[in-house]
Amino acid sequence: MRGLLAALVLAACSAASAEQAFVTNQLSDNLTVVDLANLQPLATIAIGGKPAGIAITPDGSFAYVTSPDDKAVSVIDAAAREVVGRIAVGGGPLGIAVAPDGSTVYVADWYAAAIRVIDAKARAVVADIAVGASPSGLAVTPDGRLLLSADRDDDSVSVIDTATRERKAVIKVGTRPFGVTIDPEGKRAYTANVGSNDVSVIDLAALREIGRVKTGLRPYAVALAQGRGFVTDQYDGTVSVFDLATLAPLKRITVGDYPEGIAATADGRRIIVANWESNTLSIIDAEALKVIGEVKVGNGPRAFGAFLRR
């Protein structure tokens, strides 16, 4: 029994050691790669153009980073930690997501009520999809069939059929949704509503909002682990935790100032939070619901999107 436990712990450690956080530092114009096993920075990659959004392919090979001030998306070889390409997309690229098979990258144009579709191999924009005003967070269902766009200034989420590249539904949510997160089963989505200080819970089969959870002030994005939702409250400097089954609030965990990007590690044991004002990552134990570590990163970390490399 003890041997089995030790083996399990070892397995968990080695799995965690492969994981890295790719943190976009918007004000220092670069990206910090952090080893999540020992919480040490591994590399700093120069990006430019005020990098904000990030999406890493599920196989860990590439990271795509938006630079709104340069109207561009940088392509990073995530293993080599090198910028290997730059794609001009125009407008104000912010939110970004990649299809599960890595073939297609979706970029939200904050100013144009549109999503740019990038062919990952060709590294070029191949189509546009019309959505609501100020699209911000993007997420693709695990089966790759649906793309969700949190249309901030329309208080709604656009649901796009990725095969036809057309919007098939618009779901009303709380006020000014910013980050959107889909669960691993592809059944529910969660938006952090900056204006109404809550999270909207969306049923992806029924295509409607089925619940609302109160959070702290100016919630930014949501992560999921251990049957719980974790929400960064920018103005409160906290992470609000709620139960995914009952939608009951569980706890507020104090992190750094202006927490923004948030994600769960693959094993669901830890939550990684980027603190924009403090220039740090907070590491939360997702079971014990407490902060267990902190890492210094660059200036103004946003890490908006899927920023963990597994």
């Binding site: 918007q26 004000l27 005020k50 904000a52 709104p68 001030d69 104000g92 912010l94 904050w110 100020s134 200034d153 006020t175 000014r176 900056v194 204006g195 100016r218 924009w276 004002e277 103004g300």
Partner: peptide, 12 residues
């Protein structure tokens, strides 16, 4: 208004 439209980069 609260949380109104804004640019892409918050400054400090």
């Amino acid at each position: 208004t609260t949380a109104g439209a804004h640019g892409p980069t918050r400054r400090k």
